[in-house]
Amino acid sequence: MMQSYWFGDVGDDGCRPFKGDTAAIAERVRSLRIEMDSFIPLKWQSAADCGTCRDREDYIGKLRGVCMLLAERRIAEEYRKKDVALHQMVGTLDEMDNVINLLTGRAVDWYQVSHPSFSRKYRRKPPRTLMKTISRRGGGAISRMAADIERLSATRTALAREVSDLAGDVMPNCSALLGGLVAARLMFHAGGLTPLARLPASAIQVLGARTSLFSHLRSGTPPPKHGIIFQHRRVHNAPAEVRGKVARTLAAKLAIAARLDLYRGVAVPEFLENAQTKIDAAGNVL
């Protein structure tokens, strides 16, 4: 029975070497379809018989060359996928939100110490106005810090827009149902578009509600009704008694939408229209 290995084909009548450079061998390895039932692991001596290598050291050296080239190519391919870029952007965006909130809190506390008249009523103003005031009046390091936070907020806004645009491109159906930003977050939590498309609707529904899901599984607390998709207005605006139902319907449609996004890559109007109707209907309280 003939066996195909990276360096050539080995049969009862000896070895037929594969002729080509490292790149050609890498291509060969990718295209080989190996039947595991009748598979026999290679012996490096066959490669020597084939004339591929002189000795063991040479064998390992050549094999490493092929494997490293294969790995480098596959890494590049993985990173070229658009959802990988989107993944990084969403991660950065959420981290930025965290940092901005933390620093804003710090800046306000600090400013209040040196300006006792800066009372609670100011605190109710939007953070952006606060930072403007502090950067104007604070002086010294605190001014600079407030100005930096302002700049970071502006960057955050620009990034959010880019995320939303790219999400509309990479996952048009999910974005149409959820809005680009939330759709991108959903994909982020699933670990990519492919993993998201493989999730059942029930998992999509509670994606991002890890803590409460595990406390439910472990100790039987009530199950979570929603995770990330709570951020969608139709879920968080829905009356409490139907919120679970809306989340369930939305998740079911998202599971289909994610698969459409992965395998078709374009918006499907008939599906979207039907899905919107179903989701709206779920939110109607009789």
């Binding site: 379809r33 190996i34 039947e35 595991m36 598979f39 290679l42 094999l63 490493r64 494997c67 890494i75």
Partner: peptide
């Protein structure tokens, strides 16, 4: 020898190991 493959699908790297 680094091999970038899914361990659940040994057929992808069987020709190397």
């Amino acid at each position: 020898v680094p091999i970038m493959a899914d361990a659940a699908q040994p057929e992808a790297y069987a020709s190397l190991v």
